[in-house]
Every structure is written in structure tokens, then in C-alpha cells.
Amino acid sequence: MNVSLRVWRQKGPGTQGCFETHEARDLNPDMSFLEMLDVVNERLAVEGKDPIAFDHDCREGICGMCSCVINGEPHGPEFKVATCQTYMRSFRDGDTITIEPFRSRAFPVLRDLVVNRSSFDRIIQAGGFVSVPTGSAPDGNAIPVSKEIADLAMDAAACIGCGACVAACKNGSAMLFVAAKVSQLNILPQGKPEKDRRVLRMVQAMDAEGFGNCSNTYACEAACPKGISVNFIARMNRDYAVALLKNKPA
């Protein structure tokens, strides 16, 4: 199959970018989307042109490094998969595919389709952890956790930190990402002592990074490659309201 790509090209952070058209020919429908980009890049390199820069690593949908908005959808047309698990059979011969970077003030473009998502790391650094130094843990079975709670925490913990929620949200809000981590730790007994402090600090960090605000449209949930539920956002809102009413410093 052959497709035509309209790809965002940008030399570096802060420079002007534009769309470029590239033809991708003789593709195998069993190729992954990223392998298709590999093929295009091989040709560009041989022709002495700059290959298209894009983020990727594990290529099995778990590391969260791949990004891209493909035809207006973060991670492409398939439901609940990352870009690296999108295959060319999801497109038709002759299609024109628009590929853009994740767009957010908090995710500045570094080059072409590569964006800087360190803002997510800084949010975790503000409180996305349990303060338990190595060596100070009680026996694993000393704290019973009901199966239901463990499963719910795992649902939240499945987040891969890719940023598709931000990319999909019309407001560029990071609520789903933050809520997943706040919820995972606030649900579990191990995380309870820092519950209020955690939510206040992480929300403060999220706001400081310049993400937009949640207007409950739930595009994030639809775009999430792991299907993280917006219920966790409600849960974080509740935790935040409770922490706010206690009126303690963050």
C-alpha cells in the first residue's frame, strides 16, 4: 500500500515549523505505524535529508515514550492502543495521514514530533510517591489490602505517562494523568498518611506547569491507550475538596 504523509517539521524548540509532505510507498499492512516512519526515514537519510524525529522506545505499548497525533487523534485511530501498537492495516491505500506533535504549552516541541514531557515528572516529584525510605518497610503482609482496593489502585496505576490525555483535551489539561497517580496512592492504605498533602501539592505543581483546566469533556479517557477512567478525576476532585476544607498548608 501507499500513503501520503503530512508531517509537522520543526528544527528546534522555539523555531518556526511547518507541514511537509512525504510519500510512503510499498508498505506492508502488517507494519506498525512507527516501522512505516522508519522506512520513510531510511529513504530520507539515503537521500541526505533530515529524517523525521519522533519519540519511541519499547514499541510494545508500555513505556509511554511514543506520542504523535495521527489524523487528529492522539496515538491514532485505534481504541486503547499507543502509537507503537498502531498498524498500517488501520489505514487505506492512498490515504493522506496528518501527523502532528502533542500540542501543549507544558509539552514544548523539541524537534518535529518530539516533545518535552518533563512537566509530568515534576508533578510526580511534587508528591506522587509514598515517603518510605529504603529499609524502613514493614513486612509485606503487615498491611492487608482488600482485593477490591488493590484492583482499583492497579486500574489507576496502569497509566503509562504518555500525555495523550493532555494532547486530546481541548483545554490541554493533565487531570487524567495527575488523578491516576493521586488516586492510586490515596486509595491504598500505604498512601493514606500523605493523602491531603499529596493532592494539594500535585495539583499546585500541575497548575504551575501551565496545563489547562478540566471541563469534564472526557476526551482524555477516549484517547488514553490504557483506558484510565475519568472516575479517578472525580476521586481526585473529592480528595482535593476535603484537603482544602482541612485548610492545612500544602
Binding site: F129, G140, P144, V145, S146, K147, A153, M154, Q190
Partner: peptide
């Protein structure tokens, strides 16, 4: 010790109904 440490960090290991 690794299991203890990871549990304390909030790693959501699979659990039995009794919570262990």
C-alpha cells in the same frame, strides 16, 4: 526485603480476598 519495600511504596501487587 524487596517485596516489603515495594509494598510500602504503594506497588499494587495482586491480593487475595483476605487482603494478603
Amino acid at each position: 526485603n524487596i517485596i516489603d519495600q515495594c509494598v510500602a511504596q504503594g506497588v499494587p501487587f495482586a491480593r487475595e480476598y483476605g487482603g494478603t
